[in-house]
Design a protein around this nucleic acid. Structure first.
Lengths: 169, 169
DNA sequence: CGCGTTTGCTTGAAGCCTAAACTAACCCGC
DNA sequence: GCGGGTTAGTTTAGGCTTCAAGCAAACGCG
């Protein structure tokens, strides 16, 4: 039973010790994933304990705040999630009185979502805290490193986007 | 209402156009998140269509393959997920005949998970494909960029880890 | 020895998420 | 106008995930 090391071991550490091949890319991917997961988990935790909300709810409010009234489909595309997902999320947020639905008279298939006044207030509080949390988590990175990282991630995104394109074609 | 732009818009593009403050870090975080999400979504999709499996299942098999027999708790720590999560995952994988549970005679609270022969074969196939997919997605990045990105992500991880530490103390 | 604590795992309730099937509304061309 | 195709949104089934509560085994210490 391998007395089993008890300290927390992150996925990357556990996985990265493999032989040769494309292991280079694999290590990069694991580190990217681990980093994103660490931040995401912490943000979810803080949203839960400090605001009794969740990341998807917060994200949906953020879309409405920044892009004005949106259809469900618009939110779905922006959040990169499925249509059905947004339906459920919107239902819950509406029930909580943070957003409201309004059917588009000109095209009755569509409905636009918008923040209620209460939703605006609530999101403003959450958003300010959120911005601070992110700043705090990345504070250990120099400004130059942040810029460099941002640039390299841009290239990574382009690489991935390109690969996805080719696949479709 | 708002004829609504129809092209896909990723979260980052949609969110990053905000005023001043700690927006620097926020933009970095959004790009990091978007990049990771793009890869993850594609990997999930390919696992589903090519192997009729899911990412968490694959990850659990990967842990067992690379770290030998593990307790549920060991898997939980390595995968950075909750205990209850692993219970359900293990139940499904056991039902599919890919792993087996074995109670530790010396400590009957513990049970070790290990791959069955069929699990080993299945994972070997999936793993080879997975490695290729990752290489493909990051192929547009030069070796130098990959190294630099890996290094910067290491610093980001350290920054985040540090912030989490302080919080606890 | 015995009792309180810790540890490993399971359960239950709730929410998130997807793909696929479906409904309703719109559009287009005849 | 009307039928075929498209688009917006909902529903359903299934899986993933968490937290919190709970149970049983083991530990530790008086």
């Amino acid at each position: 039973m391998s007395p089993d090391d008890q300290r927390p071991v992150d996925a990357e550490t556990a996985l990265a010790d493999a032989p040769a091949g494309h292991k280079d890319e694999l290590r990069l991917w694991l580190r990217l994933l681990t980093t994103a997961t660490m931040v995401e988990t912490e943000i979810r935790r803080r949203l839960r304990v400090q605001f009794a909300t969740t990341l998807p709810r917060f994200d949906l409010l953020a879309q409405l705040q920044r892009a004005g009234p949106l259809t469900l489909g618009g939110v779905s595309r922006r959040m990169m999630v499925s249509n059905g997902n947004v339906t459920g999320l919107a239902t819950r947020l509406e029930a909580e009185g943070l957003i409201e639905r309004r059917v588009n008279a000109a095209d009755r298939r569509e409905q636009s979502l918008r923040l209620t006044p209460r939703g605006k207030r609530e999101f403003a509080r959450q958003s300010a805290a959120h911005e601070g949390w992110i700043a705090e988590l990345f504070a250990g990175l120099s400004a130059a490193d942040r810029v460099a990282l941002h640039r390299l991630l841009g290239r990574a995104k382009a690489s991935i986007g390109g690969a996805l394109q080719e696949e479709t074609q």
